[in-house]
């Protein structure tokens, strides 16, 4: 467990690299394979996940600690968190559409897709399971989401490059993507030795 006085920087690094949500925890893999054909679209998805994840984990932390715990309703967290995430995505979509059309165009389809991304829910749960304070939770969510961005952009750039390579027929398309992801995961496992949490 992460103790309270742990360095915020360590929390960030742990979420970003050591416990990378995609490559080490294997959460949110559907979008990892679905939206990694091109770097541009993976960047869009990563940006959407980052913005929503940071906001949603802060709000869910507040709801959990100030609403659910006082009434001993911890078992309601899944339902209420999904409620928060779905609402938040809608709100953010409205806001960007109104005040920043360019950003809305850039995020495009990826913003609604975030609603059903399990990584968002996982980040909210993990922050609570680690008993983090509000600030630590914020940094943790930032680290997780940037880890998502990093992993999906790296993966997309490898996939963009790999289609030019002479791949055996049986491995073309998704199989080689699976292999790539597993090798990337092995590489990220190397960060495990950095420090233990």
């Amino acid at each position: 467990m992460i103790s309270n006085n742990l360095n915020i920087f360590l929390i960030f690094l742990s979420a970003l690299l050591v416990n990378n949500i995609l490559l080490i925890r294997f959460i949110g893999l559907c979008s990892f394979f679905g939206i990694s054909q091109r770097i541009e679209s993976s960047l869009g998805m990563g940006a959407a996940v980052t913005s929503v994840m940071v906001m949603s984990s802060s709000i869910t932390w507040l709801i959990y600690n100030f609403l659910l715990i006082p009434f001993h309703l911890q078992y309601l967290r899944t339902v209420s968190f999904i409620l928060v995430i779905a609402t938040l995505v809608q709100l953010v979509e409205r806001f960007t559409k109104k005040y920043n059309t360019n950003l809305y165009q850039a995020l495009g389809i990826y913003l609604p897709l975030v609603t059903t991304n399990c990584a968002i829910l996982a980040a909210a749960f993990l922050g609570i399971d680690y008993h983090l304070s509000f600030l630590q939770n914020l940094i943790y969510a930032l680290g997780v989401s940037l880890g998502y961005l990093l992993a999906i952009v790296l993966f997309a750039s490898i996939r963009e490059r790999i289609i030019f390579s002479p791949i055996p027929k049986a491995f073309k398309g998704v199989p080689i993507a699976f292999l790539t992801a597993s090798l990337m995961s092995l590489a990220f496992l190397g960060f495990k030795g950095l420090f233990r949490l």
């Binding site: 609403l67 309703l73 209420s80 409620l83 609402t87 809608q90 709100l91």
Partner: peptide
Amino acid sequence: IASLLILGTLGLIFGALLTLAHQRL
């Protein structure tokens, strides 16, 4: 009752927020 109330209130608040956003934005 507490769980019903809390979940209901949360739902109501979020619903109201969305409606408001729909009109304002």
